[in-house]
């Protein structure tokens, strides 16, 4: 059987020639589709190896060869989430949803990205859509509650998390979050009940940490210490609980214990700014103002927008008679939303 490539063929009629050419075009398109699919599959392979950059490049290629490849848009969005390019991920999820409106996963991911970007209204739109699509799934209600909480709409968040709990009553995380709503609404006893319920379902360190902080608010400092201690027992590397327990010791003027906890917190996580801030306060109370300033400096170097550390550094600088430095720090802290610093600046600075 004779074979030949595409070339002039005098035995073909014009119609046959056109037919042949159209087939050639189809073949070309088919080849692009094939390459697109191969790149897409390669991207999935890279992703599974946590090689997110290569994964994104592969999905890039898949999309460039087949712009209507909805799955590739979605997967690239997920890869971008994994490589912390949340804004880029939102763009990809937008396209994935445009191409495949029924892709609920894309909606979940887009809402998640919007939440992390502070685009709460957009996140809520997606979750509202999802609650309508999946009315018996607790997840969209749970995530809606999370967004509403972040928006400071605690009453609305409460309603949403109530729905999530009614759909899935054994989810400790929902009770934890509802407790946080109650806490913000200063319904401490309700919050306490929910945290205890959450702990009875799933005794996780962060829930115990939240319990400690709630008990501190309820003036039960011994209870707070006990809760933080349990959190530490559950997770020995839970630097947050060390720092928080240190604050209770600080408030009880048990400075040695407090500083030991802050040191431990820093040892576990040398990038945890709050522990430096809190240890600086101990130095301040011990009138070691230079050391205090050093710790506040460190806290600020770790977290440039750490208003509270600016406030505190200003307070220590004032004791070092560095009036200009104190005022500059309070101004910065005020700019970062610390109202108390604004008051100090107004009263004590020119």
């Amino acid at each position: 059987m004779a074979q030949q490539g595409q070339k002039q063929d005098s035995t073909l009629t014009p119609e046959e020639t056109r037919y042949r050419d159209s087939i050639a075009a189809v073949n070309q398109a088919s080849k692009a589709l094939q390459e697109s699919q191969e790149s897409y599959n390669k991207g999935i392979e890279f992703f599974s190896q946590k090689a997110y950059k290569q994964a994104i490049l592969s999905f890039d290629k898949a999309i460039s060869l087949q712009n209507s490849f909805g799955k590739a848009w979605y997967n690239r969005g997920v890869a971008k989430v994994a490589s912390t390019d949340t804004k880029g991920a939102i763009v990809d999820f937008n396209k994935a949803i445009e191409l495949e409106p029924a892709n609920l996963d894309a909606r979940y991911k887009r809402a998640e990205c919007c939440t992390s970007q502070g685009e709460y209204e957009n996140a809520l739109l997606d979750y509202t859509f999802l609650t309508a699509k999946e009315p018996s799934n607790y997840k969209p209600f749970y995530y809606s509650a999370e967004v509403l909480f972040l928006m400071g709409k605690y009453e609305d968040a409460l309603q949403s998390v109530n729905k999530a709990i009614s759909l899935k009553p054994d989810n400790a995380r929902s009770y934890n979050d509802r407790a946080s709503c109650f806490r913000k609404l200063e319904k401490y006893q309700d919050a306490l009940n929910d945290l205890n319920k959450a702990i009875s379902i799933d005794k996780q360190a962060f829930i115990l940490n939240n319990l400690g902080s709630l008990k501190r608010l309820m003036k039960d400092n011994d209870g707070a210490v006990a809760a933080y201690t349990t959190a530490i027992e559950i997770d020995k590397s839970y630097y947050l609980a060390y720092s928080n327990r240190g604050v209770i010791y600080l408030e009880k003027e048990q400075y040695d214990k407090a500083i030991a906890d802050f040191n431990k917190s820093i040892e576990i996580n040398p990038d945890f700014a709050a522990a430096f801030n809190n240890r600086g306060i101990i130095y301040h109370y011990r009138e070691q103002f230079q050391n205090a300033v050093k710790d506040f400096d460190k806290a600020i170097s770790l977290k440039a927008d750490y208003g509270m550390a600016y406030l505190n550094r200003g307070i220590s600088k004032e004791m070092l008679r560095e009036g200009d430095g104190a005022c500059s720090d309070w101004q910065k802290a005020e700019d970062l939303g610390i109202k108390l610093a604004g008051k100090y600046h107004m009263v004590d600075c020119d």
């Binding site: 400790a172 934890n176 946080s180 940490n209 947050l240 600080l250 801030n277 509270m308």
Partner: peptide
């Protein structure tokens, strides 16, 4: 002082 919580699971 700075108490840091993880209010949302």
């Amino acid at each position: 002082p700075d108490i840091q919580d993880q209010l949302l699971a």
